[in-house]
Design a protein around this nucleic acid. Sequence first.
DNA 1: CCCTGATTCGC
DNA 2: GCGAATCAGG
Length: 175
Amino acid sequence: MNWTDERVEQLKKLWAEGLSASQIAAQLGGVSRNAVIGKVHRLKLSGRGKTTSTQTRSKKVNTTASAGHRSSVSTSAQMTSRVVTKSVGATALQQEYFVDTVTQTVMKPSTDVVVPISRRLELVQLSERTCKWPMGDPLQPDFHFCGNDVGEGGPYCTYHARLAYQPASDRRRVR
DNA sequence: CCCTGATTCGC
DNA sequence: GCGAATCAGG
């Protein structure tokens, strides 16, 4: 793959948006993150306008004073908002729809369940330890995955595993 | 260990 | 110019 004007254009755009080199590489396809970084330097774009501190890690908002043993969760993440909002860069504090990849059932998480904030990783960023649950509105897939730590070594994190194997009768359909 | 960008240097 | 390998860091 070579750096066509179009690809360079996209690189500039994504880099300006604050995406990390690996994410840009994943999006462009055919190049490694090193290639992206190298190109960025050659274009002299290294310094990004804002100090977009990537690394989406929940700030942890605990409303209950009880001894929480829930790990990091955000109260806002427990709310169910329908739309997948576009946020700046890789940081995405947004609610998602859940789609059972087997039954194609579209569902919303139960409101009484603690919903972990997903890391929204690119496909190529997944490893054996990252949750592979697909993210986004099924009608407008965004090709990101949960990416949170998988609990006992399954394909999904504890939350998504629970969702995946939830009886169909317990699922809440959307639309 | 996961990830990040920065730098080097053979191609 | 390109990008893998490497480095330094969170």
